[in-house]
C-alpha cells in the first residue's frame, strides 16, 4: 500500500473517482461555455466544477486535493472571477453604460462565438460560484476534521 491509500475512502471509490472526475470537470466546462445557446450557464457550470473538486476531496482525503487547490488559491480564483465580472461591466461605460453589451454584433445567433460579452460573463460567474462553493466546503469539512484530530 502506498502512502496515498491511507486517507479517504476505499480503493473502489478511488479508482472510479480517478476515471470519472475529469469527465465531470469537462462537463462543467461545457455547461459554462454553452450557457448562451443551451440550458445551463455560469451558475450550474460553476457548481458542477466545484463538485468535481469536492468529489476528489471526499474520495482521497483532504491532503491530496489540497495539493491541487489550496485555500489561498481558492480565494485568488474567486477574487479573479469578481474582478473579471466588474471589469466587463466597467468596459461597457466606454460604449454606452454599465453592463453595456459592447461586443454584441459579432457572430451569428446560435454559434458558440456570439452574444457579445455574455459568454465572458458566464465564465466570470462560474469562477466566482465554483471557487466560492469549494472554499466553503474546504472551510467546513477539512478544517473541522483537523480540529477534531487535534482534540484527540
Amino acid at each position: 500500500m502506498s502512502k496515498e491509500h491511507e486517507h479517504g475512502m476505499s480503493v473502489i471509490v478511488k479508482t472510479v473517482t480517478r476515471l470519472t472526475v475529469g469527465l465531470i470537470f469537462l462537463y462543467g466546462m461545457y455547461i459554462v461555455l454553452h450557457g448562451h445557446i443551451t440550458p445551463g450557464g455560469g451558475f450550474a457550470g460553476g457548481v458542477i466544477i466545484a463538485l468535481s473538486f469536492i468529489n476528489l476531496d471526499l474520495a482521497f482525503g483532504g491532503k491530496v486535493s489540497g495539493k491541487v487547490f489550496s485555500k489561498g488559491g481558492t480565494s485568488l480564483v474567486e477574487a479573479l472571477g469578481a474582478v473579471m465580472f466588474l471589469a466587463l461591466a466597467l468596459m461597457g461605460l466606454q460604449y454606452g453604460g454599465f453592463f453595456d453589451n459592447f461586443l454584441h454584433p459579432d457572430g451569428e445567433p446560435g454559434d458558440l462565438v456570439s452574444a457579445g460579452i455574455i459568454p465572458l460573463e458566464n465564465i466570470a460567474i462560474s469562477l466566482k460560484v465554483g471557487a466560492g462553493l469549494f472554499g466553503i466546503f474546504l472551510t467546513l469539512i477539512v478544517l473541522q476534521k483537523f480540529e477534531s484530530e487535534k482534540k484527540q
Binding site: H36, F99, N101, P109, A115, I118
Partner: peptide, 16 residues
C-alpha cells in the same frame, strides 16, 4: 443581445 437562450440574456444583459 445575440443570445439564443432567453434566460441567459435576461440574467447577464437586461438584468445584470
Amino acid at each position: 443581445t445575440g443570445a439564443v437562450n432567453v434566460v441567459s440574456s435576461v440574467i447577464l444583459d437586461y438584468r445584470a
